[in-house]
Write a protein that binds this DNA or RNA. Structure first.
Length: 771
DNA sequence: GACCTGCTGCGGCATG
């Protein structure tokens, strides 16, 4: 059921009256003059039905209270043993925030409220296990730890849950962590005679139906979907273009001589962007999303130096996942307190979760690749009534001449920025991608976890515990048997089978489960820890070659490495005036959706100049469109430069990657990119042959194709999964795209044929069609 | 040409 009508005041009063008198007292104490729409809807859904509930609303719309006010009303006065409410969050910091918000309310209701994560105090946890009651706020990894280390305690805690509340559901809908939590929820359900009701809290998401499937896989249709009124987004927007100077060397990537770093770096687009940010953001609170940790450090460094040169207090500070908790919290507190103007230059760390108050503007370096993420970032600005959201997008493009690369000439970043804004206006948000590449790893992890929790179990019991509707619904009994056989192989030794058929952990399985990093389903790397005096600054990857005397830019400042403790992996550093930005290991790029690529094609074909472009960005757009026309890309989908062959697919990353893999089968070196794939060092003839083979693909060729795909191991425990099984899962994941390959190849062949006749007309046309 | 997230149990000690 969808419900998004604005609620009447009579309805709001009715909802208020249904709350426990102590909850109403608490509301009055807060000084609230009315309940928000989403809270009224939440009260009705929780107290007037037995259904699961999904609450989707923008940040700061009062989602937490929409769930907790009625839930606490419902469980107040309950006195059976066991927790009544389990709240699950992806972040420890969010748990601490929620704890502060709920502390007083729970005290009024005489309900114990316990934070349960790795950094939370132990005393209250011990007390809770002794007398399980009330509400626990927990992370998925702490649930995992409870199940495998203290299964009896877990059973006592979870045997009588009335509600499971999952915060930031959208953050769990893709990726290994979402599979993990979904499996844990299923296992927790089995502890109780009656499964707890589930309540999901989420930001505005594209596909509420998919979220309902995640929340209650066995009965998604019975999930009540609540959405707050979506008011039109009042947005002040600018896309600013910056030309990267061609003649100047790129920003220093390698180790320079020590004295070289004392000089100012060469002028580059990022410096010009820093100049603009410095001039426009000082004096207020803002977020600048840099896109990578490297860019964040470079920008923070530039901005600090400008403050020093201007002899004014610095207001710009970096924030990313490698910075120490202390530094990050200092900045978060400074933003939230609002006593000093502050701009955080961040990666996606400040995109969700912790309360940092409202900021005046959001800046984004580089064009967005995800509308979900852009929307979430915009949610951080203009939240006070009547204030518009302010967004600045800074795009950088390379200088072009007749030898420039095709992609530079097409001004792809500028066009993608315009396309993203058009999709923002159309309210498009990407749906989650199912199923996740980490499926096999998650299944193996949960098999080991169930065997540990139960001290051994028969295979059919484990399958029953994990299979069926839920994260592993697509896993067949024979898939499962193959996974178990792989885990029992001598070289893995993860599990063993007793003569009576019971499965138990083997020596290898014991080692894996005993390791401290078993609790999380995502991987983590070993890193150097940087410490200045006694102050922890954060970490950098071990892949950075470190010698004493090395200079490092980190945490927005410059440091000299004084001492290295190889054993403890600690670098003692002191302040210095020079520095080089460290390497942060990159894994992949953020995937763009089909719809974004399709919208880019429309932007190329259109001729309007959006008013939100500055002069340089408008020039980039005009140049990109001119190149698009000159190359005939309105109709052509292939382009043979004589050295490379470009195939324009106008699809998202998923399809472009599969298409590149298909071409690779025929010995063609194909690189996927934003608009399609580029086949390197190939003749048109080679590519035509390859396309002909792809055009002949039939549905049942997928299996043969899958057998030859490279790089199917991608997740944490994939090394312990039989490769044929990984391949089978890969094939199923791509089955939906498979049917698109042959028609695409056929249409590309048509484009080749038209181009050939066109080139024939121009008898002496140059083979080199680069611009 | 990406980003983020999490973590036991126990013994021993100091402290209120």
């Amino acid at each position: 059921m969808n419900s998004s009508a604005s609620v009447s005041s009579a309805r709001a009063a009715g909802a208020y009256d249904r709350l426990d008198p102590r909850v109403r007292f608490w509301i009055r104490e807060q000084g609230w003059d009315r309940l928000r729409d989403i809270q009224v809807q939440g009260i009705e859904a929780v107290l007037e039905s037995e259904a699961d509930v999904l609450v989707a609303a923008a940040t700061a719309a009062g989602k937490t209270e929409a769930a907790f006010l009625p839930v606490l009303t419902h469980v107040a006065g309950r006195d059976d043993s066991g927790l009544a409410v389990l709240y699950i969050s992806p972040l420890k910091a969010l748990i601490n925030d929620q704890f502060r918000r709920l502390e007083q309310l729970c005290e009024l209701l005489e309900l114990p409220l316990v934070r349960w994560h790795g950094d939370a105090p132990r005393g209250p946890k011990t007390k809770l296990v002794a007398k399980p009651r009330g509400v626990a706020l927990i992370t998925p990894e702490s649930i995992e730890a409870l199940l495998i280390r203290r299964p009896a305690d877990a059973r006592r805690l979870f045997c009588a849950l009335d509600f499971v509340i999952v915060d930031e559901v959208h953050a769990f809908m893709t990726g290994p962590r979402g599979l993990h939590l979904a499996s844990l929820l299923k296992r927790i359900d089995a502890f109780a005679p009656r499964p707890a009701r589930r309540i999901g809290l989420s930001a505005t998401i594209g596909d509420l139906g998919a979220a309902a499937v995640w929340l209650r896989p066995s009965e998604p249709a019975r999930v009540r979907l609540l959405q707050s009124d979506v008011t039109g987004l009042d947005l002040q927007l600018q896309i600013r273009g910056y030309l990267e100077p061609k003649a100047v060397a790129p920003v220093q990537q390698t180790e320079p001589a020590e004295d070289a770093v004392l000089q100012r770096e060469p002028a580059c687009a990022l410096e010009a962007i820093a100049e603009h940010l410095f001039a426009n953001l000082r004096g207020s609170n803002n977020l600048v999303f840099g896109g990578s940790r490297r860019t964040v450090e470079a920008l923070a460094d530039q901005l600090r130096r400008r403050a020093e040169e201007a002899e004014v207090p610095n207001e710009f500070f970096p924030h990313h996942g490698n910075l120490s908790k202390e530094l990050r919290e200092e900045l978060e507190t400074r933003l939230k307190d609002g006593l000093l103007p502050t701009t955080a230059v961040c990666t996606s760390t400040l995109e969700l979760g912790v309360d940092i108050g409202s900021v005046q503007s959001v800046a984004q370096i580089g064009a967005p690749r995800s509308l979900a993420s852009l929307r979430q970032r915009l949610g951080r600005t203009g939240r006070r009534l009547g204030m518009p959201a302010v967004l600045r997008i800074y795009v950088r493009e390379g200088a072009c001449d007749e030898r420039s690369d095709l992609m530079d000439a097409l001004r792809v970043d500028t066009v993608r920025a315009v396309a993203a804004i058009r999709l923002l206006a159309a309210r498009f948000v990407e749906p989650p991608a199912f199923p996740d590449p980490a499926l096999a790893t998650a299944l193996l992890h949960q098999v080991l976890s169930v065997l540990t929790e139960r001290g051994g179990a028969r295979a059919d019991a484990v399958y029953q515990a994990l299979g069926g509707p839920g994260p592993f619904a697509s896993v067949t009994p024979s898939d499962f048997a193959e996974l178990l056989r792989g885990a029992a192989r001598a070289e893995s030794g993860l599990i063993e089978q007793a003569p009576d058929g019971t499965l138990m952990l083997g020596a290898g399985g014991e080692r894996l489960v005993q390791a401290r990093d078993f609790y999380a389903l995502f991987e983590s790397a070993d890193e150097w820890r940087l410490i200045a005096g006694t102050r922890p600054l954060g970490t950098i990857p071990l892949s950075n070659a470190i010698v004493p005397g090395k200079l490092v830019v980190f945490a927005g400042r410059r440091w000299l490495v004084e001492e290295i403790d190889e054993q403890a992996r600690v670098l003692q550093v002191s302040a210095h005036h020079g520095g080089v930005i460290p390497k942060f290991d990159r894994l992949s790029v953020e995937a763009a959706h089909d719809r974004l690529a399709a919208e880019m094609r429309l932007v190329y074909a259109a001729d309007d100049v959006p008013p939100y472009l500055d002069r340089q960005a408008a020039a980039f757009l005009a140049e990109g469109r001119a190149a698009h026309r000159r190359l005939g890309l309105q109709t052509a989908t292939s382009l043979d430069t004589g050295r490379d062959v470009h195939l324009f697919l106008w699809r998202g990353d998923a399809l472009c990657h599969v298409f590149a893999a298909a071409l690779a089968l025929f010995g063609l070196q194909a690189e996927p990119h934003d608009l399609g794939v580029t086949v390197r060092w190939a003749t048109g003839e080679d590519v035509r042959t390859g396309l002909g083979r792809i055009a002949a693909f039939r549905a049942d060729d997928l299996d043969r194709f899958t057998e030859q795909v490279q790089g199917v191991q991608s997740a944490k425990f994939d090394a312990h999964v039989p490769e044929p099984l990984l391949r089978r899962f890969w094939g199923r994941r791509h089955a939906r795209l498979w049917g698109d390959l042959a028609p695409l190849a056929t249409s590309l062949l048509g484009s080749f044929a038209r181009q050939a006749s066109h080139n024939g007309d121009r008898a002496h046309a140059s083979a080199d069609q680069r611009l």
